[in-house]
Design a protein around this nucleic acid. Structure first.
Lengths: 217, 217
DNA sequence: CGACGCTTTGACAAACTTCAATCCCCGTGG
DNA sequence: CCACGGGGATTGAAGTTTGTCAAAGCGTCG
C-alpha cells in the first residue's frame, strides 16, 4: 500500500519555505518502486532528496547480510543531504514512491549560499539528534521498550494516534536491532495489554498513550 | 592515570589551523577531576571544548539509571559543538584532565563566520558518521564483535597498536551496550586467542591486527 | 478460490545478564 | 621495601531475554 495521505512534515525536517519552493520548482520528480535503491552506500553525495509520497528507509549492510536501518523518511521530509562527500547508508523506497531530486549545487545557487548552509546544518543536526536517540534505544532498551518507543515515535512524527505502517516487520526489526519474531511477540504483548490496537498487520491505533510512553521510558 | 602522551588528533576531529590557534590563544584552560561534569544533559550549548590532556566521555542517562555513552574524546579533539541549542548528552572527565573552553560566539567572531560555519559543519558531520557506525555496532553486532570493534577503533584513533585505556570496564560496557562482565569475558577470550595482549587491565597491544579486524567485521 | 508472502505462534537453543565470590592490581602506610 | 587494604576486574553458576527453526495462520492479489 502506498503511503499517500497528506500531512505537514515535522518542522525539524522540513525545508524552509524558500528552499522548499526552489526544490519544488527545480527538482526532478522521480518515482521508485518498492525496494528500489535511491542511492547506494559509498555512492557520491551531490544530490538532495525530498519525499513527495510514499516512504524511504536508509540502511547499512554488513558483509554477512545483517542490516541496520538508520531511519525512515515520510512525505515532506528531506534526506540524503547530511553526507559530506559520500553516503554511509544506502536509501531505498519502502513502497512505491515519488521523490523530488535536486542537485545540491543547484539548490545552493538558487537558495543562496548562506541559506543553503544553514539549511544543511539544521538538517544534519536533526539527523544527529535522532541518531543519538536511536543509539540509546539500541544500546540500553529492552525489546518491549524498543517497540513501544518505535510506535510512539512514529505516531508523534505523523502527528496522529492512528497510523498505517509503511514498512513490514523485517524493516521494523532491522531498525530496532531485533528479529521479526521478537517484534511480533512484543506487538502481541502490547495488544494484550490494551495499549495499542491493530487492524491487520499494518494499521494501528494507540489506545493508551500514557502507558505506551511509560513503556518506552 | 592521566592520558598525557602527545599525538596528532585525527584530521576529522581537529580544528583547522586558524581556528585551532584562535582557540589556544583565547580559550580558557580548565581542569576537571575524574568523573567531574563538564556540561550537563539539556544544558545550553554556547561553549565549545577541546581536550588538551586526559579524556572525556559523553553520556545520556535513562530515568532508572541505565546509561549510554555516546563517544570518547582524546587530546586534540573537539567536542560539544554539534549541539544546535541544547546538549542531548552530558560530558564528563574520564580522568583528571585539562580542557580548553571557548565561547562559540567568540570563535565565530575571531575565526570569521564562514570559517566557523564550515568548521561546525565538518565537526557535526564527523560526529554523525561516528554515531552511525556506533548504531550498526549496537544494533547488529555480537558482544565479541563489539569489543573487537572497540579495540581496533581505539587503536586506529590513537594511531598505535599499543594503547592505554583511559576508561574502566563500566565505561566500555556503557559504550558497547553490554555489562562489565560480558566485556571482561570477551577480553579474556581475545587474549586466549592471542589476538590482543594485556598488561594489567588498562594497557593493551594488538598482537594480530588482521584477526582482530576480521572479528570486528 | 487458491496460492504466495508476510506475520504469528510455539518449542527449543544460544547469547547475554545477574548475582556472588574471588582475584589482582595499585597505592598506601608501616 | 614489604605488608595490607580496597576498588576494580575476572570468573563461575544460574537465570532471563532474545534468537532460531519450524509450523500454522492470515490476507492480499491474481
Amino acid at each position: 500500500m502506498i503511503q499517500s495521505q497528506a500531512f505537514a512534515a515535522p518542522a525539524h525536517l522540513a525545508l524552509d519555505a524558500g528552499a522548499d519552493d526552489v526544490m519544488a520548482r527545480m527538482g526532478l520528480r522521480m518515482t521508485f518502486a518498492k525496494d528500489e535503491e535511491i542511492y547506494g552506500q559509498d555512492e557520491d553525495a551531490d544530490l538532495i532528496y525530498r519525499v513527495v509520497s510514499g516512504a524511504v528507509r536508509t540502511s547499512r549492510l554488513m558483509s554477512d547480510g545483517r542490516r541496520q536501518i538508520g531511519d525512515f523518511y515520510y512525505p515532506g521530509e528531506m534526506f540524503g543531504l547530511e553526507a559530506v562527500k559520500q553516503h554511509r547508508f544506502s536509501a531505498e523506497a519502502l513502497c512505491d514512491c515519488v521523490i523530488l531530486v535536486l542537485k545540491a549545487s543547484a539548490l545552493r545557487v538558487a537558495a543562496g549560499e548562506t541559506a543553503y548552509d544553514r539549511m544543511v546544518q539544521v538538517a544534519t543536526n536533526s539527523e544527529l539528534d535522532r541518531t543519538q536517540d536511536h543509539l540509546l534505544l539500541l544500546g540500553r532498551k529492552s525489546a518491549s521498550e524498543r517497540v513501544a518507543s518505535f510506535l510512539i515515535g512514529l505516531a508523534d512524527r505523523r502527528r496522529s494516534d492512528a497510523v498505517t505502517l509503511p514498512m513490514g516487520r523485517q524493516d521494523m526489526a532491522d531498525y530496532l536491532g531485533l528479529t521479526i519474531e521478537t517484534v511480533s511477540r512484543m506487538l502481541t504483548q502490547l495488544q494484550a495489554a490494551l495499549v495499542v490496537e491493530f487492524a491487520g498487520a499494518r494499521q494501528f491505533r494507540i489506545a493508551n498513550r500514557a502507558a505506551l510512553a511509560r513503556m518506552a521510558d
